[in-house]
Simulated scan of single mutants.
Amino acid sequence: METALVDQGFKSAVVDHGAALGIGVDIVQRNPADRGFVPQPKRWVIEQTYGTLAPHRRPVRDYEHRPASSESRVYWAMSDVMARRHTSSPSWRGA
């Protein structure tokens, strides 16, 4: 990982910690003129991925003890998503 994007709620401690690990930390600032929910660039992609994983439940919770096990759950969930999109079959929720 080279760069981490964080919310504006994070302050200089996160930037300093990232620098100590050799990771650049960019704080995504919100435009003060915006009202309500406005997707932020780059971070929206990550939030969309979390939303895609949410119906699969297990990758959303931190049940796994090993990173490799957690990674395999994400591959499992995304394989299901891609297969359903490719075949145009409905999700388990009937949507």
Rank of each mutant, 00 (worst) to 15 (best):
V14W: 06
E2I: 00
P55L: 04
V25A: 01
S79C: 14
Q40A: 12
V60A: 11
I27K: 07
E47K: 05
R84K: 15
R30D: 01
V6H: 07
V74K: 03
V81K: 06
D62V: 03
M82W: 12
K42W: 10
R66C: 01
G51R: 04
D62M: 07
D7A: 08
Q40F: 00
E64T: 01
A20C: 02
V28Y: 07
R43I: 15
G36C: 04
T3A: 05
V25K: 02
G18V: 09
E71C: 09
S79L: 14
D26E: 15
L21F: 02
R85K: 12
R84V: 05
W44F: 11
D7P: 10
A4I: 13
V45K: 09
V15N: 01
S12R: 15
S70F: 15
R73T: 08
N31S: 10
T3D: 02
W44Y: 13
V38W: 05
R30C: 04
R73W: 15
V38T: 14
A33F: 01
R66I: 01
R43A: 05
S91R: 09
R58L: 11
R43P: 01
T3E: 12
R43M: 15
G9A: 14
Q40E: 12
A4S: 09
T3P: 02
P41D: 07
K11N: 05
P59F: 00
I46L: 08
R84H: 08
V81I: 13
Q40C: 03
R85H: 11
N31K: 11
V74F: 09
H17I: 04
E71K: 13
R93W: 07
T87K: 07
